[in-house]
Design a protein around this nucleic acid. Structure first.
Length: 286
DNA sequence: TCTACGCCTTACCT
DNA sequence: AAGGTAAGGCGTA
């Protein structure tokens, strides 16, 4: 077990790790979050001054483990720029400047894609359950019941739709099964290579896949493929955008996306996270 | 092409 | 306890 402090500003662990961009982090009693980083069982904690990551990576070099954690948490993001760009936005600007940041992370693309295929027409508890069931197809790397490497697409393709249905994916079983087949055929690294093409081309490529529409594609682009201009639009974000910026009630989602890219540029994904969270909180408190 | 609408599963809530 | 809701996408008309 290696423990390290990251040179990264303390952030909102709950909202970032467990707020709906990733689905495999578990809150433990001391306020830290446990989960899996590739083939490493990890714990992320914060004391308000620094971020502490503990990793059980089986004798791997500390420097590599650190690099992986910093990559996942996007330690290189200049959060001062985020504050400058989004800090004065109506409605959510204050939560950008006055509370711990919710960070856009950088997940492994296949796990991210599979998770968001599961996410459609569902809610976070259910998504977590589905993703956990899929994850159990991977290699076990620890004692905890969630400690599995996320399975390669070929593994998921092999178990087939019926199995995925039997563990609760419902009609999403077909989508994940077919998409796993296609992605397995692409070969390793093909998904990640979408990081090097334009937002628009990468989105088109993703939307060829079964179960991947504009929303799911944007989630994968934003949370795993470095596309800061992705702006995943669901009912909540749509409602928030219309209310905060006085957009037309029946504006098309495509238009909202273009509007967001125009206004927020490479920080659209960050803006979406804040708008989503604030809209959820607003509904809960009213 | 473009839009509208019914349908698909099920955990979790009231 | 029954019924509505939930971070959508697909197929058809």
């Amino acid at each position: 077990m290696s423990t390290m402090t990251l040179d990264i500003e303390p952030f909102d662990l709950e909202q970032t790790l467990d707020g709906g961009q990733a689905f495999r982090w578990h809150l433990s009693g001391d306020g830290s979050y446990c989960g899996v980083l590739e083939s490493c069982v990890a714990r992320v904690a914060s004391d308000g001054l620094q971020v502490i990551v503990s990793c059980d990576s089986g004798g791997e070099l500390l420097s590599e483990t650190r690099e992986r954690a910093e990559d996942y948490l996007q330690a290189g993001t200049d959060v001062d720029v985020v504050r400058r760009v989004l800090g004065s936005e109506p409605g959510f600007g204050e939560s950008v400047t006055e509370s711990p940041l919710v960070r856009v992370m950088r997940q492994e693309p296949w796990e991210c894609l599979a998770a968001f295929i599961c996410s459609q027409n569902s809610n976070i508890p259910r998504i977590k359950q589905m993703v956990a069931a899929v994850a159990r197809l991977g290699r076990r790397i620890g004692e905890d019941e969630w400690a599995y490497e996320f399975p390669e697409p070929g593994v998921i393709a092999e178990v087939g739709e019926a199995y995925l249905r039997s563990v609760g994916l419902g009609y999403r079983a077909k989508h994940l099964s077919l998409t796993a087949q296609v992605v397995a055929g692409w070969g390793g690294g093909a998904l990640a290579s979408l990081r090097t093409v334009s937002y628009s081309d990468a989105k088109d490529a993703l939307m060829e896949l079964q179960g991947v529409g504009p929303k799911v594609a944007d989630c994968v682009l934003a949370y795993s493929l470095d596309k800061g201009e992705a702006f995943p639009i669901d009912v909540h974000v749509r409602r928030a955008a219309i209310r905060l910026y006085d957009l037309d009630e029946d504006v098309k989602d495509d238009m909202v996306g273009e509007w967001a890219r125009d206004r927020f540029g490479k920080f659209a994904a960050w803006a979406q996270l804040y708008m989503f969270r604030d809209e959820i909180n607003r509904r809960l408190t009213s």
